[in-house]
Design a binder for these strands. Structure first.
Lengths: 193, 193
DNA sequence: CTTTTTCTGGACCGATGAGTCCTAAATATT
DNA sequence: AATATTTAGGACTCATCGGTCCAGAAAAAG
C-alpha cells in the first residue's frame, strides 16, 4: 500500500542509545542524534516523538539489553567466574578507540535522577534488580565452593552493588584496564575467607 | 581611587559552585549562574572569564573545601568514628529541602571527565588523594583498636574508595538517610574481623 | 566639586537549541 | 502507467545559548 520505511527502527534506537550513553542527555543535541541514526529530522520526530521520549526509549532499551546480558553472563560455571565476567563486562570497551561508557543507569543517577522522577525511578529499580540478580549468584558460588565467605549472600550482593558505581566511575575517569581489573580483584577478595 | 567592587568574589564563586554541583556543567546556564550569584553579566565575565573558566574555578574551590573537610573530620578519635563521620558528610544534606548533591568530583567523573582532559586529571587526582588520606586513618584505627581487620590499610582504603561513588550514586538517586546509613554500616563491617 | 576610574545593567550579537511544517521523491497497489 | 500514500529532506520558527559591548552610575582622590 504505502511506501515502506527505509530505516530499521530498533537499530536507530540502538544508535541513539549509544550517543545518550556516551554523552548524557544534556550533552546530546538533536544534531548528534540525527548524525548517529542517519535519520532525517521529520523521520526521527515521527518515529520517536520528542528528544525526551527518545531518551526514555533508549534508556529502557539499554536497561533491557543489560538485564539480558546479566542473565546470560551470570549463568556461567562456577558462579565466581560468572560474577567476575559480569563485572568485567562493565569496562569491556576500555582500551578501544572510544573512552569507556560505563553503565548508563549510573550515569543517569548522576545526571538526571536528582531532578527527574521518571529517571530516578528507573535508576532505583536498576540498583534493586542488580542486588536481586547478584544475590542468588553469590549463594550459588557459596554452594559450589567458588566463594568462601560465610556472610549472607544478600549482604555480599549489597557490597557488590555498592562497589559497582566505583568501577564505573574509574572507567569513565580513564583508568586503564589493568587498574580496573586490580580493583575488581581486590573487591572479590571480600567474597572469600 | 576607583569604585570598589560591590560583591564578594569568593562568596560568588561559592554560589556558582553550588549550582554546578547540583546541576552539572551542561545543565547550568549563564542565567542560572547570574541568578545564583546575583552578579550582572558583565561583572561575572570580568571577574571569572568564561563559563568554563568559572566552572574550573568553582570545581577547584570545591575540591579545596572538601580536602579541608576531610582533613578536619579524619582527625577525630577514635579513627573509626572519624572515617565514619567523613563518609557520612557525603550525604549530610539528605532529607533537607534540596535533593542530595553527592560529591562533585564523582559527578564530574561521569559528566565531563570522559571527554575533557582537564577535568579527568582532577578527578583522578581526587580519587588518589582520597586513598592517600584514608590509608593513614585506617592504619590509625587498626592501632587504636577501633578497626580490627588484619588487611593492609591501603587495601581497605581502596575498598572504601571503590565504595565511595556507590554511596554518592545512592544519595543522588534519592535513597533515604536510613538506607544510606545502612549501606555505610555494611561497608564498615568489612573493616572488621 | 570636579575628575578619574571602575563597576553595573542591559541591549545586543551570532550560533545553536528543540521542534514544526511543507514540498517533493519514492514505492506499493490498481 | 496512474494513483494513492507515506516517506525524507530541509527550510523555517522561536527560544535560549554563551559571550560582547556600550553607556551611565557611583565612588575615591584631588
Amino acid at each position: 500500500m504505502s511506501r515502506p520505511q527505509e530505516f530499521d527502527t530498533p537499530e536507530a534506537l540502538r544508535q541513539a542509545m549509544e550517543v545518550f550513553w556516551r554523552q548524557g542527555y544534556e550533552g546530546t543535541s538533536l544534531t548528534d542524534l540525527l548524525a548517529a541514526t542517519g535519520l532525517s529530522k521529520s523521520s526521527l520526530y515521527a518515529t520517536f516523538g520528542s528528544k525526551r521520549d527518545l531518551f526514555l526509549a533508549a534508556f529502557d532499551a539499554y536497561r533491557q539489553a543489560r538485564a539480558r546480558d546479566a542473565h546470560r553472563l551470570l549463568q556461567q560455571q562456577p558462579a565466581r567466574e560468572a560474577i567476575y565476567a559480569f563485572f568485567h563486562s562493565l569496562f569491556a570497551n576500555v582500551n578501544t578507540d572510544q573512552p569507556a561508557l560505563g553503565c548508563m543507569s549510573i550515569n543517569q543517577a548522576v545526571e538526571l535522577a536528582p531532578h527527574d522522577p521518571q529517571v530516578r525511578e528507573r535508576v532505583v529499580q536498576d540498583l534493586h534488580q542488580l542486588e536481586e540478580v547478584l544475590t542468588p549468584a553469590i549463594a550459588r558460588g557459596q554452594q559450589d565452593g567458588s566463594l568462601t565467605s560465610p556472610r549472607p549472600a544478600r549482604e555480599l550482593a549489597r557490597l557488590l552493588v555498592l562497589a559497582f558505581p566505583g568501577l564505573q566511575v574509574m572507567a569513565r575517569a580513564g583508568y586503564s584496564s589493568q587498574e580496573l581489573d586490580e580493583a575488581l580483584r581486590l573487591l572479590f577478595t571480600h567474597l572469600d575467607s
